[in-house]
Simulated assay, not measured.
Amino acid sequence: MPQEQLLPAGWTLDEIREVSGDRKAEPLSTDRVVTWLDRPEGNEQRLHPQIVLGFQGLCLVKPVDDEDWYMGHLEDDGSVCCWSAYGDLYEALRGL
């Protein structure tokens, strides 16, 4: 799949790297398990990723049919465990 299809609409990889401050940021495959830990209840919910962006161990995930961006960390097995949500990508990138 071309890299542009793995990026959010209207964003380039250079823009994502500039806003996040991470020159190694990269789009990752969506073929992975992504979970959202809903606090304070501690319920775990499975997310179906449309876009996954990697930032040296941290990830931002845009699920299918959801406008929010979820921040989490990359597990050793390639899965992502998310613990925070943002209303837009710019805000999420600045929160890294």
Rank of each mutant, 00 (worst) to 15 (best):
K24L: 11
H48C: 06
A85M: 12
H73V: 02
L58N: 06
G57C: 08
G10L: 04
G87K: 04
L7F: 04
V64R: 13
A9T: 12
L37F: 02
Y70H: 12
D65P: 00
E91P: 00
E18V: 03
G10T: 03
L28E: 14
E4A: 15
P49K: 07
D68L: 15
C81I: 11
E41W: 09
W36E: 01
G72M: 04
R46E: 14
R94N: 09
N43I: 04
R23P: 13
I16M: 04
A85L: 14
P63L: 05
V34Y: 01
A85S: 15
P27I: 00
V64Y: 13
K62T: 01
Q3G: 02
K62N: 15
H73S: 11
P63T: 02
C82K: 09
L6N: 07
L60E: 02
L60V: 05
E75R: 02
S29A: 12
L74M: 15
D68F: 15
D68M: 13
G87P: 07
V80T: 10
A92L: 02
P63G: 01
G87A: 04
C81D: 10
D14W: 01
R32M: 02
E26I: 00
H48G: 05
P8H: 08
V61W: 05
R46W: 06
S84Y: 08
D65H: 11
G21L: 08
W83V: 12
A92K: 00
L93I: 02
V33H: 08
E26T: 06
L47T: 01
W69F: 14
E67H: 13
V64S: 10
L47G: 01
C81T: 13
L74G: 00
L7P: 00
V64H: 09
G78V: 11
T12R: 03
D31S: 14
D76H: 04
E4Q: 15
R94C: 09
L53M: 11
V52P: 04
C59G: 06
D31H: 12
L7E: 03
L96Q: 00
R46C: 07
L93H: 01
L6H: 07
I51G: 07
E15F: 03
E18M: 11
Q56C: 10
A85K: 15
Y90I: 06
V33T: 12
E4I: 14
E67N: 10
G72H: 05
L28R: 14
L13I: 14
G95P: 03
G21F: 04
A85Y: 07
K24W: 10
A9R: 11
S20Y: 08
D77I: 12
R39P: 00
D38A: 15
D38R: 15
Q56K: 10
P49W: 06
P63A: 08
R94E: 06
M1K: 09
R94H: 05
G10Y: 02
A25M: 10
S29Y: 04
D65L: 13
E41I: 06
L47Q: 00
K24N: 14
